[in-house]
């Protein structure tokens, strides 16, 4: 067989193989990428009764699928922050002894304004609003 014809056959064969390989891999690749599951967007949640949380304590509240840390700093003052550490995604907790928010994973510390005091977290914690309606504590997203 002469050279140009041989080359043509080679190209056809190689091209066909590559094309079929791509046609196998593309759907497989797409399959591995998880679809977006739309979440009902939550703007406000009830965090229970006022008397359930003592002053200088905190608790994690479900805000849709996200954890939010609610802190009752004094008898009358409440604060709420996203409990997701801005470093590597762990969940923070309230440290009663030092009045700070603490991430146990790599020792990240935030003050009660959400700002980083020490440790590796690169950003402050996102703040949420807290309202008292009657004897119910309500947390909502900041506008």
């Amino acid at each position: 067989m002469d050279e140009p014809r041989r080359n043509l056959v080679r190209w056809l064969l190689g091209g066909g193989l590559s094309a079929s390989l791509i046609s196998f891999l593309y759907p497989a690749f797409k399959f591995m990428n998880p679809p977006d599951v739309p979440e009902a967007s939550v703007n406000e949640v009830s965090a229970g009764k006022v008397q359930d949380l003592k002053p200088n304590t905190g608790k994690i509240v479900k805000f849709g699928s996200l954890p939010v840390l609610l802190v009752r700093t004094t008898e009358t003052e409440w604060r709420a922050f996203s409990a997701v550490c801005t470093h590597l995604n762990c969940t923070v907790q309230y440290k009663e002894s030092s009045h700070q928010m603490w991430c146990a994973c790599h020792n990240g510390l935030y003050n009660l304004n959400g700002q980083v005091v020490s440790g590796p977290p690169p950003h402050p914690l996102e703040a949420y609003s807290v309202h008292i309606r009657g004897d119910e504590v309500v947390i909502s997203r900041r506008a």
């Binding site: 954890p67 762990c90 146990a104 994973c105």
Partner: peptide, 10 residues
Amino acid sequence: DPFAPAPAGI
């Protein structure tokens, strides 16, 4: 528990 803080000493 996805809604518990990371425990101390982790």
